[in-house]
Design a protein around this nucleic acid. Structure first.
Length: 456
RNA sequence: GGAGAGAUGACCGAGAGGCCGAAGGUGCUCGCCUGCUAAGUGAGUGAAUGGUUAACGCUGUUCCGAGGGUUCGAAUCCCUCUCUCUCCGCCA
């Protein structure tokens, strides 16, 4: 138990991975990852050998160079014999001050060569380290796939309907607020065009969510860039492994954000934060762009799986000691949106086999969709512990301690806006094809109580 | 897009081949002092990584935007790149 928790926080410390290879390898298996780490030991040995050698040479260079400076100042020219103190540092053939220069040139060349070897070993290690997923927290249920995710709690009830509930794409197209055909004409499959009250409802939801999180949950609103560079993508763990899921802008190092998690977590990349400022809580609206590679034929209808969708995100930077409390709070902050909208949902805890690459622990919130007769993910809330903080180098200074430490990063959707809209369409649909607007949204809809058609 | 200026520690800001891991200040830590607060005052205080130690610690190496080069030796000289600022052009 202890060791597992310990592991979670220290993951991707090279020293730890190197010294506990068997434990890490075992944990990978539990995650259903077949990554082979056996080469790591040799790479690290190479690295340390080169390091020891090159540092010894650099030490000699530093000391001799320093002495040369002093000798010159003292007025000794090249023909003078070298002082005793330097004799041990250089070869026996070096007798005069003038010989030192030549000897040091040779040492410098050796250093250059060893530095090259060192870099090579380091790169091999990095390449391997960057594709090792985070290790699950001890509380993560063990299982192979999504079907093994236990339900943590449910809230509300399925709405009673005395008619056959329709799927949102039928409702939306009938009302004229969702237009997939024209979106396909403009762009392609997996895009949506919203009309009139549909567009308005999407905008209302964004504002409603941001207002709750900023006014009641204590998050600071940020509006980040919707494109990020490769370094940021690596920091949060999308790269190097998941390049195929991203849209990259041709001829640049820029990517469309797949989630606000990337720009917002990277706000503090390379920074040392003050402990008194933690936890730092941000909320951000962004569109999200996903290539959805490998999902051909899945969820092809409606708003479920789009290349572009809107999301309000919650991001936290926490002290390690409190990160799991913060995760529970963040989860409740996301749930609160569904509660206010009176949408029935369940919370599941992702099992080891279903956990994402960067996460130590993840809860999914799944909303009930009567039109399809199933629960559907509408939010995913995770604690990444040190995983992203190491990659993005986000540290803080624990009070009273000399060393800096990595923060824990967390994030969760609060919520996916398109999926919230479709959940409203399906849960609030009426027999006549209209859709009642949840009360809390009416102030955001100019008082409108019911969607009856695009023009109204 | 054109022209110029710049990038130094948590932050501001000196430094212009060796005496620089880097003055001074802010912040922070530990004291002193004033009844509280503010002010004052003394000392300390960069990061990463390797070795060693039971530990306090001791010690090597690296880091002055990034990468190359010159040199026995680079924050400092040269080249390339990135970013920031100012002016001009264009533009929501």
């Amino acid at each position: 138990m202890y060791i597992v928790e310990f592991m979670g926080t220290i993951m991707h410390d090279l020293k730890f991975v190197r010294d506990h290879l068997d434990i890490v390898q075992e944990s990978l298996k539990r995650r259903r990852s077949d990554l082979d780490l056996s080469a790591l030991t040799q790479f690290d040995q190479d690295r340390r050998d080169a390091l020891a050698k090159v540092e010894a040479l650099k030490n000699i260079r530093n000391r001799v160079s320093d002495a040369v400076g002093r000798l010159k100042k003292a007025g000794l020219d090249d023909n003078n014999p070298i002082p005793e103190e330097l004799a041990d540092l250089v070869g026996p053939e070096v007798k005069q001050v003038g010989d030192l220069r030549q000897e040091m040139r040779r040492v410098s060349d050796d250093i250059k060569e060893l530095d090259g070897l060192l870099l090579e070993a380091q790169e091999k290690i990095n390449t391997l380290m960057m594709v090792i997923p985070n290790l699950p927290h001890s509380s993560v249920p063990i299982g192979a796939e999504a079907a093994d995710n236990p339900v943590v709690r449910t809230w509300g009830e399925k709405p009673q309907m005395d008619f056959d509930p329709k799927a949102h794409w039928d409702i939306g197209e009938h009302l004229g607020i969702l237009d997939f055909e024209r979106a396909a004409k403009i762009t392609g499959a997996r895009f949506a065009l919203y009309w009139g009250q549909g567009a308005r409802l999407e905008r209302a939801l964004i504002n409603f969510m941001l207002d709750i999180h900023t006014r009641e949950h204590g998050y600071l609103e940020v509006l980040p860039p919707f494109m990020v560079n490769g370094v940021s993508m690596t920091g949060t763990g999308q790269l190097p492994k998941f390049a195929a899921d991203l849209f990259k802008l041709e001829g640049t190092d820029y990517y469309l954000v797949p989630t606000a998690e990337v720009p917002v977590t990277n706000i503090h990349a390379q920074e040392i934060l003050e402990e008194k400022d933690l936890p730092i809580c941000y909320t951000a609206y962004t569109p999200c762009f996903r290539a959805e590679a490998g999902s051909y034929g899945k969820d092809t209808r409606g708003l479920i799986r789009q290349h572009q969708f809107n999301k309000v995100e919650l991001v936290k930077f926490s002290r390690p000691e409190t990160s799991y409390e913060e995760l529970e709070k963040l989860l409740l902050n996301a749930e609160e949106i569904l509660r206010r909208l009176n949408l029935h949902y369940q919370v599941v805890s992702l099992c080891t086999g279903d956990l994402g690459f960067s996460a130590s622990k993840t809860y999914d919130i799944e909303v009930w969709l009567p039109g399809q007769g199933l629960y559907r993910e509408i939010s995913s809330c995770s604690n990444f512990e040190e995983f992203q903080a190491r990659r993005a180098n986000i540290r803080y200074r624990p009070t009273g301690q000399k060393k800096t430490a990595y923060v824990h990063t967390l994030n969760g959707s609060g919520l996916a806006v398109g999926r919230t809209l479709l959940a409203i369409l399906e849960n609030y649909q009426q027999n006549d094809g209209s859709v009642i607007i949840p009360e809390v949204l009416r102030p955001y809809m100019n008082g409108l109580e019911k969607i009856t058609g695009v023009r109204v």
